[in-house]
């Protein structure tokens, strides 16, 4: 029973959500809408369990004074403070002047964009490494990347025209790479991924994949 009930549930919801696309009938659309709504509600409610998990995982570490326990304590304190004051403000997290909004503007936003900005450094180091790998594949990847990068800045266009006497227009080459080989590659990935996704979906609905069914 522990396995059968979930398997039946998966099958029913899966089939309804698949058939729904082809049938506009209310007898199909109403259950579909309900399933979708319920599914999303359940998923968002899990943030409560998630927050509990943070406490369950970290509190014992703090109590036992394990490695980095002070940082964990700061983290848990920051979480409780932010959540506590946020709930105290009763959902006014978007209002200017509220504590939650202050936290968002002065902590979360700068931290987020700084993490994002790290990418500029990492992308350089990744490119640098690709440069040193001497295989046909790496060369192709890097050549395409360099052409595209150069083709998107004015100096690249100027240089290519000057050096080749107008025979080569870099932006044109970039759009050719984009429209012909890049498109072919992307299409194949999308078609392949779609096939993989469909067959994974079918395996899940049929109950062949059941590693998520703990007993």
């Amino acid at each position: 029973m522990k396995k059968t009930i979930p398997l039946i549930v998966t099958f029913i919801t899966g089939v309804i959500m698949t058939v729904e696309y082809f049938s506009p009938h209310p007898l199909v659309q109403h259950p579909k809408a309900a399933i979708e709504k319920w599914g999303i509600s359940v998923m968002s409610a899990m943030i409560v369990l998630g927050t509990l998990n943070i406490l369950i995982v970290n509190l014992p570490r703090i109590v036992r004074k394990e490695r980095d326990w002070m940082y964990k304590a700061i983290m848990v304190a920051a979480m409780i403070a932010t959540a506590g004051l946020g709930f105290y403000e009763q959902g006014k997290f978007d209002d200017k002047g509220s504590f939650s909004n202050w936290m968002f503007t002065h902590l979360l936003v700068p931290l987020q964009s700084t993490m994002f900005a790290l990418l500029a450094f990492y992308i350089t180091s990744a490119a640098f490494r690709a440069f040193r790998a001497r295989s046909v594949e790496a060369t192709l990847l890097l050549a395409a990347a360099i052409i595209v990068m150069l083709g998107r800045v004015p100096i690249g266009e100027l240089l290519s025209a000057k050096l080749t006497g107008g025979a080569l227009n870099l932006p044109d080459l970039v759009s050719w790479i984009n429209d012909v080989p890049n498109l072919a590659g992307k299409r194949a990935i999308m078609v392949g991924a779609a096939l993989g996704a469909i067959s994974t979906g079918i395996r899940v609905i049929l109950g062949m994949e059941r590693s998520y069914l703990a007993g």
């Binding site: 025979a167 080569l168 227009n169 044109d172 080459l173 759009s175 050719w176 790479i177 984009n178 429209d179 012909v180 080989p181 498109l183 299409r187």
Partner: peptide, 17 residues
């Protein structure tokens, strides 16, 4: 070949672009 074919691009190939 890409350089030659891109010299005077016609309509982009494919719907995406």
């Amino acid at each position: 070949a890409g350089v030659i074919l891109s010299a005077k691009p016609g309509k982009p190939v494919g719907g995406e672009t």
